[in-house]
Simulated assay, not measured.
Amino acid sequence: MRIRLTAGETVLTATLDDNATARDFASLLPLTLRMDDLFKREKYGHLSRSLAVGGEPRFGYGIGDIAYWSPGPDIALFYAHDGQSIPDPGIVILGQIDSGADAFKKYDGTVDVTIEAID
């Protein structure tokens, strides 16, 4: 599934993976999340509920990854890499931003991000 992420003047596209967690996330769309900054590497936002288990937990990430962190339950948009790993229980990758994830660097602190399906 293709999605659009909009934050202020920034509009990015992404592709969700085909796993149960990503499909459950897609069922919440469209949504707008208030996303905070963490470690100058990611924007994260709190979901209204936990997502289904089904994607493989990972302890690493790449720039442009859209990930689910179950203890939150939060999603994260990774726009930089600081060399650190993700603590237990890890993250489930929901999808990848096609390009331009570093645009989130310009939003110091909190930013509202709207996420919607485009397929």
Rank of each mutant, 00 (worst) to 15 (best):
T6D: 05
S99C: 01
L77P: 03
L12P: 01
G54Q: 04
D88T: 12
A52V: 01
T32A: 10
I91R: 00
T114G: 05
D112N: 11
D37L: 03
P73T: 09
I63V: 15
I86H: 10
I115S: 04
G8P: 00
P57F: 12
W69V: 10
S99K: 13
E56K: 14
A22I: 07
A20S: 09
G109W: 05
V113H: 02
T10H: 06
I75D: 01
L12K: 02
G8N: 02
I97K: 05
G72A: 13
S99F: 07
P73C: 09
Q96R: 15
R49G: 03
Y68R: 04
D17K: 09
P30I: 11
A76M: 09
L51S: 08
D112T: 00
V53A: 14
G8R: 01
V113W: 00
N19M: 08
I66C: 04
Y107R: 07
T110V: 14
R4H: 08
P89F: 06
G60M: 03
E42K: 01
A20V: 04
R2H: 14
E9P: 15
D102C: 01
L28A: 07
I75H: 00
I118H: 03
R58A: 15
A26M: 07
D74R: 09
K106V: 06
L5I: 14
A103R: 15
F25G: 06
L28N: 05
K105V: 06
A103L: 10
Y61R: 10
E9H: 12
V111W: 03
M35V: 15
G109C: 06
L47I: 08
T10S: 13
G45T: 06
D108R: 13
S48G: 11
D18F: 01
L12F: 03
A101I: 10
F104Y: 13
D108I: 10
V53S: 14
D17L: 11
D36L: 13
P30Q: 11
K105D: 12
A7S: 11
S48A: 12
A101R: 05
T13S: 12
T110R: 13
D112S: 09
V53Q: 12
T110C: 05
T110Q: 13
G72K: 13
F78C: 02
P87C: 11
S85H: 12
I66D: 02
Y44E: 00
H46S: 09
D65S: 05
R4S: 15
G62M: 04
I66K: 02
D18W: 00
L16Y: 06
V53I: 05
I3M: 14
A22N: 02
M1I: 06
R2D: 15
R58N: 10
T21C: 05
L5T: 09
R2Y: 12
Q96E: 14
D119N: 12
Q96T: 14
A103Q: 15
A101C: 09
D65R: 06
H46W: 07
E56A: 14
R4D: 09
S50K: 12
Y68P: 03
R23L: 07
A20P: 11
M35P: 07
T21Y: 02
R2K: 15
L94W: 04
Y61C: 01
H81R: 13
S85V: 12
E42Y: 02
L31E: 00
E116M: 06
G55D: 03
K40H: 14
Y44I: 10
S27H: 08
